[in-house]
Design a protein around this nucleic acid. Structure first.
Lengths: 107, 107
DNA sequence: GGACGACATGTCGGACACTGACATATGGAG
DNA sequence: CTCCATATGTCAGTGTCCGACATGTCGTCC
């Protein structure tokens, strides 16, 4: 029922979780790394997005056995993975269109 | 000085203008067409975006000789075209990363 | 000539996401 | 013991998008 498209911050959070379950701060660092340092999420953006994604059932809390630190680990749900895939498919289509339009206009 | 990324509505407006100069309503119809009917801009979104893009120097008004109808035709500036190209390059990079991450997680 | 729908531009309030600043607390290194 | 990285969270401000409303023209059909 939720409509795409995703914002870049949220997309990067999901891509980070697509690789493996992570906790918030780990997502923060991973996003910075995979974006080549270009995207540095503020904690407000991150934790707000996590709450929203939880509410929509795209991600879920992972239960931990014993970790000394106060970490909250999240993982993609199958629903979240499906939605992420369709979102990426949409992006690919849009990117292809964009490349065509730009190329055509340069001739 | 303006930072990317662009929202999907604005990106589609720019792609529409990348092909040829258009007036507002024409952009509206073109965006609907190139997005396969998926994106239907509200006029609030469209005219707001056009004002912003004018202010940032990404697009400019085209002077008309004589058209009966009250049309305001816009075209991309060279600055706008450069920025659009770098934005599309960014999207391609992000899309590539996304495909990799998703593919890897499916194995 | 009158009605109606497509064309054409615009404003405005509400909803919502992103940002930056602030707050708090723990772990490890020196 | 001090400092920094780790770790999570809130909040006010800002900007964008959307839907509704407003206004007017042009062409066509009856």
């Amino acid at each position: 029922m939720e409509q795409l498209p995703l914002s870049e911050p949220v997309l990067l959070v999901l891509l980070s979780l697509a690789e493996q379950p992570r906790h918030g701060y780990s997502i923060l660092k991973d996003v910075e790394q995979i974006s080549g340092g270009r995207v540095v999420l503020s904690t407000g953006t991150l934790y707000g997005a996590l709450q929203r994604l939880l509410g929509q059932g795209w991600i879920e809390r992972q239960v931990e056995n014993e970790s000394s630190r106060d970490r909250r680990v999240y993982r993609l749900t199958s629903r979240g993975r499906r939605n992420l895939q369709s979102e990426v498919a949409r992006m690919e289509q849009l990117t292809k269109l964009a490349s065509l339009r730009i190329a055509r206009s340069e001739v």
